[in-house]
Structures are given as C-alpha cells and as structure tokens.
Computed example of a mutant assay.
Amino acid sequence: MLTDAWINSSLMLPLDEDAPEFLDSMRSALLQLSQDRDFWIRSIYPRLIVDASDEFKFRKESSAPSGFIAWKSGERLVESARRTLIAGAKSYMGPGRHYVNKHGRFAHRYLDQVLMGQSAPGSYIITAYAPPNGAVPLSGSADAAAFAVPELGLASVRDVSQAVVRAVQATVEALEHYRSSGSLAGFEAGVAQGISYEMTSAILGIAENSDGADISIEWDPVTPAPGELDSHFEFRGSDVDPLSKAATRLAADASSEVSTLTGRVHLLAKKQAGSPGVFGLDTLSGGRAKKVRVRLSDEDEYHEAVRAHEEDLALEVSGRLEKEANLSWLYDATVVRTLGPISEFSRPSRSAIEGQISLFSEQVDE
C-alpha cells in the first residue's frame, strides 16, 4: 500500500496475480489513479523514477492558500532545508559547536547525492530524497579510489542521513528543555549529539515568520529504519528567540570577546576565490562602533548579507570585535538571523533636537 501522510491518501495495489480478486482490485487502483492525477504526480511517479530513497520533508505553515507561500519565504525555506542537511552531515564527522568551514566538502559531497522534489499541498513543503544505499567519500582527494577500494573510506548515505536526524532531534530536545526551564544548557549539552551553530541557525530559518513548521522523515524500507530516532519534529514561532540565543552562544569563541550587532548592510565586497566575503554594517544596536566591517567565517552566509542589502532588512551578526586604526572589524563573523525592515530598527540621531525637521531622510554611506 502506498500512502501520502500529508494528504491522507492511500492506494492498494494487488500483488498476487493468481488471486480471484486481482483483476477487480487492479481496475479499482487504476480508476483511483485516473481520478486523482495529483496523487500520481506527487506521490507515485517520483518513487518510480527515483531509486530507493529516504525522504526528508520540510514544511512551513503560511497565510497563503494551501500549497503556496510568499516567494521570499519560500526561498528562505529552501535555503534553511539545505543548511539543515549540511549541518547534520558535518555532525557525522564529529561534534562541534561551530564548524565554520570544517567538514564542508564532505557535507557538500553528501548533498550532491540528494535530490529535491516538488512541493506538496499542506502549506509549503520541500522534499529531499537521499539514497540509503549510496556512499560518500570521506576524503575528496580519493573519490575514485574510495569507490574502487571501500576500505579507503566511504560513509553510507543512510548513516549520514541518520546523523542529520539525530542532530535535529537533539535540537528539538534542547528547545523542550528551554520551554520548561528557560535555560540554554540543553543546547550546550547536546553538542555531542549534533547540535551546532549551523544546525540551530538553519532551524531558526524554518521556524521564523511561520504559523508553525515541521520536519518529517520517511525511511525507505530497502534498509531497516533506525528505531532510536523520531520521524517528526515540530517548531513554533516562539522558538525563534531561544534558537537565536543558542546560535549566538554556540558561535562564540570562549578565548575571545564576542559581540552581537544588529545593523544595515552596505559596502558589499565581491567574494574572492576561497574568501567568504566582507561587507559593511551600519549598526543600529548602539555601542561604541557605529560602522563595522564584517568578515564572514562561512561563505554560505554571504548571500544573506546580499539579501538583507537588497531588501533593506536588518541583519544580526556575531563575531570578534576589534579596532584597527579608524575602522572597527567583526572577525570570524556569523549571520545569526535576518530581521525585519530597517525602518523598524532605525537608531534615532543623537543630534536630533525636539521640533527640528531633518533635512535628510537617510544617512549617506561611507
């Protein structure tokens, strides 16, 4: 029996051709398919053309009609789903509070094995198909040799997928601990199970600006499903605050002073090969540094700065704040999250006098 849990549809397929009811059952199944074209396109056809696959479904509730989402929110959901898979794949290689670029090539080799499916009704759903029988070379320098001689180092795609789910599950457990205690200690304790800055910030992107969101996993029966892992995880809009705080804490380097700033992005620098990118931040959160140059630690986050610049959104970043001559720099910086419109975070001018009319509506960039 094929089922689609998102729309509560099912299809009974007879397997015994010698059974007296075989023809009637097959006609009934074909009639059902002819009357429900969406079920065929959405649930059955992808399984016929794709090899055995474990399915990850990332769903976000929105005020749009069922199956639709605001364009920018849809882009954010796709990006957050990708970052969830990347963060979980990194945790397969070993625990870490903040990976930055560590294990990045391995995680992207895992992602190269994954297919993205069409959205399904419900609200808006991103589906990822990961082949359980696939393999990921542990070392990029020995890809061909690794497949020829497995002893050189291959990771099972199913094992990496389990690491993704284990990290998501640990993050959900930390959120539950926060709801009951108000403490972020669960995030610190869960690093050994896969919680990291990368995972918390990815799930933050799924939860924010939503009326509810969830991640579900359906393991392909070709390989026995792991019994110790949950298969459905729910998130609330109220989870954004603890996830943001946890991301900031996990990104912090205990050996240096870390600052978290909110501001308007300007002076974007084009990325160079091997460089994560640099941008200017006109801070809105107060403090001694009014303008800061931000040097990112992860190139995947550069596009968030570009988006914040293009859409006039406030950006929250965290890093090591240092002063060099007349410039303030935020080194090893990470994007905690993208906030709302700049107008909602504007810093009042210190020189403003009550009743005085400003001649300029916006400060000129450096």
Rank of each mutant, 00 (worst) to 15 (best):
M1H: 03
T3E: 11
S10R: 15
M12T: 14
P14R: 01
F22V: 05
S25N: 14
A29R: 01
L31G: 01
Q32R: 14
L33K: 10
D36P: 03
F39D: 10
I44V: 15
Y45A: 08
R47H: 01
S53F: 10
E61C: 10
A64T: 13
P65C: 08
G67H: 09
I69S: 05
I69C: 02
W71G: 07
G74H: 04
R83C: 04
L85V: 05
I86K: 00
A87P: 01
A87F: 02
M93I: 05
M93L: 11
G94V: 03
Y99P: 02
V100D: 12
G104T: 07
G104R: 15
R105K: 14
H108K: 13
L111V: 12
D112Y: 06
D112Q: 11
G117F: 06
A120T: 14
A128V: 03
A130Q: 03
L138R: 00
S139D: 05
S139G: 00
S139M: 01
S139P: 00
A145I: 12
V149P: 06
V149N: 15
L152V: 07
L154K: 10
L154D: 02
A155G: 00
D159E: 14
D159H: 04
V160I: 04
A163T: 00
A163W: 02
A163Y: 00
A163K: 07
V165Q: 00
A167G: 02
A167N: 02
E173D: 15
L175W: 01
I195A: 05
M199A: 02
M199D: 01
S201I: 04
A202F: 05
L204Q: 12
I206M: 10
G212A: 08
G212D: 11
G212H: 08
D220Q: 09
P221V: 11
P226Q: 09
L229N: 15
L229Y: 09
S231G: 13
H232M: 09
F235A: 05
F235Y: 09
G237F: 00
V240H: 06
D241S: 14
S244L: 00
A247C: 10
R249T: 12
D253T: 02
A254K: 15
A254Y: 08
S255R: 13
S255M: 09
S256V: 14
E257W: 13
E257Y: 13
T262M: 08
V265Q: 01
L267Q: 15
A269D: 14
A273R: 13
G274D: 04
P276T: 07
F279P: 11
F279E: 09
L281R: 08
D282S: 14
L284Q: 10
S285V: 10
A289H: 09
R293M: 10
L296Q: 11
L296G: 10
R307I: 05
E311K: 13
E316M: 15
V317Y: 06
G319S: 03
R320V: 12
E322T: 14
E324M: 06
N326A: 14
W329P: 07
R337H: 11
P341Y: 07
P341W: 08
I342P: 07
E344G: 07
S346A: 15
S346H: 10
S349V: 01
A352P: 02
E354A: 04
I357W: 09
S361E: 15
D365K: 11
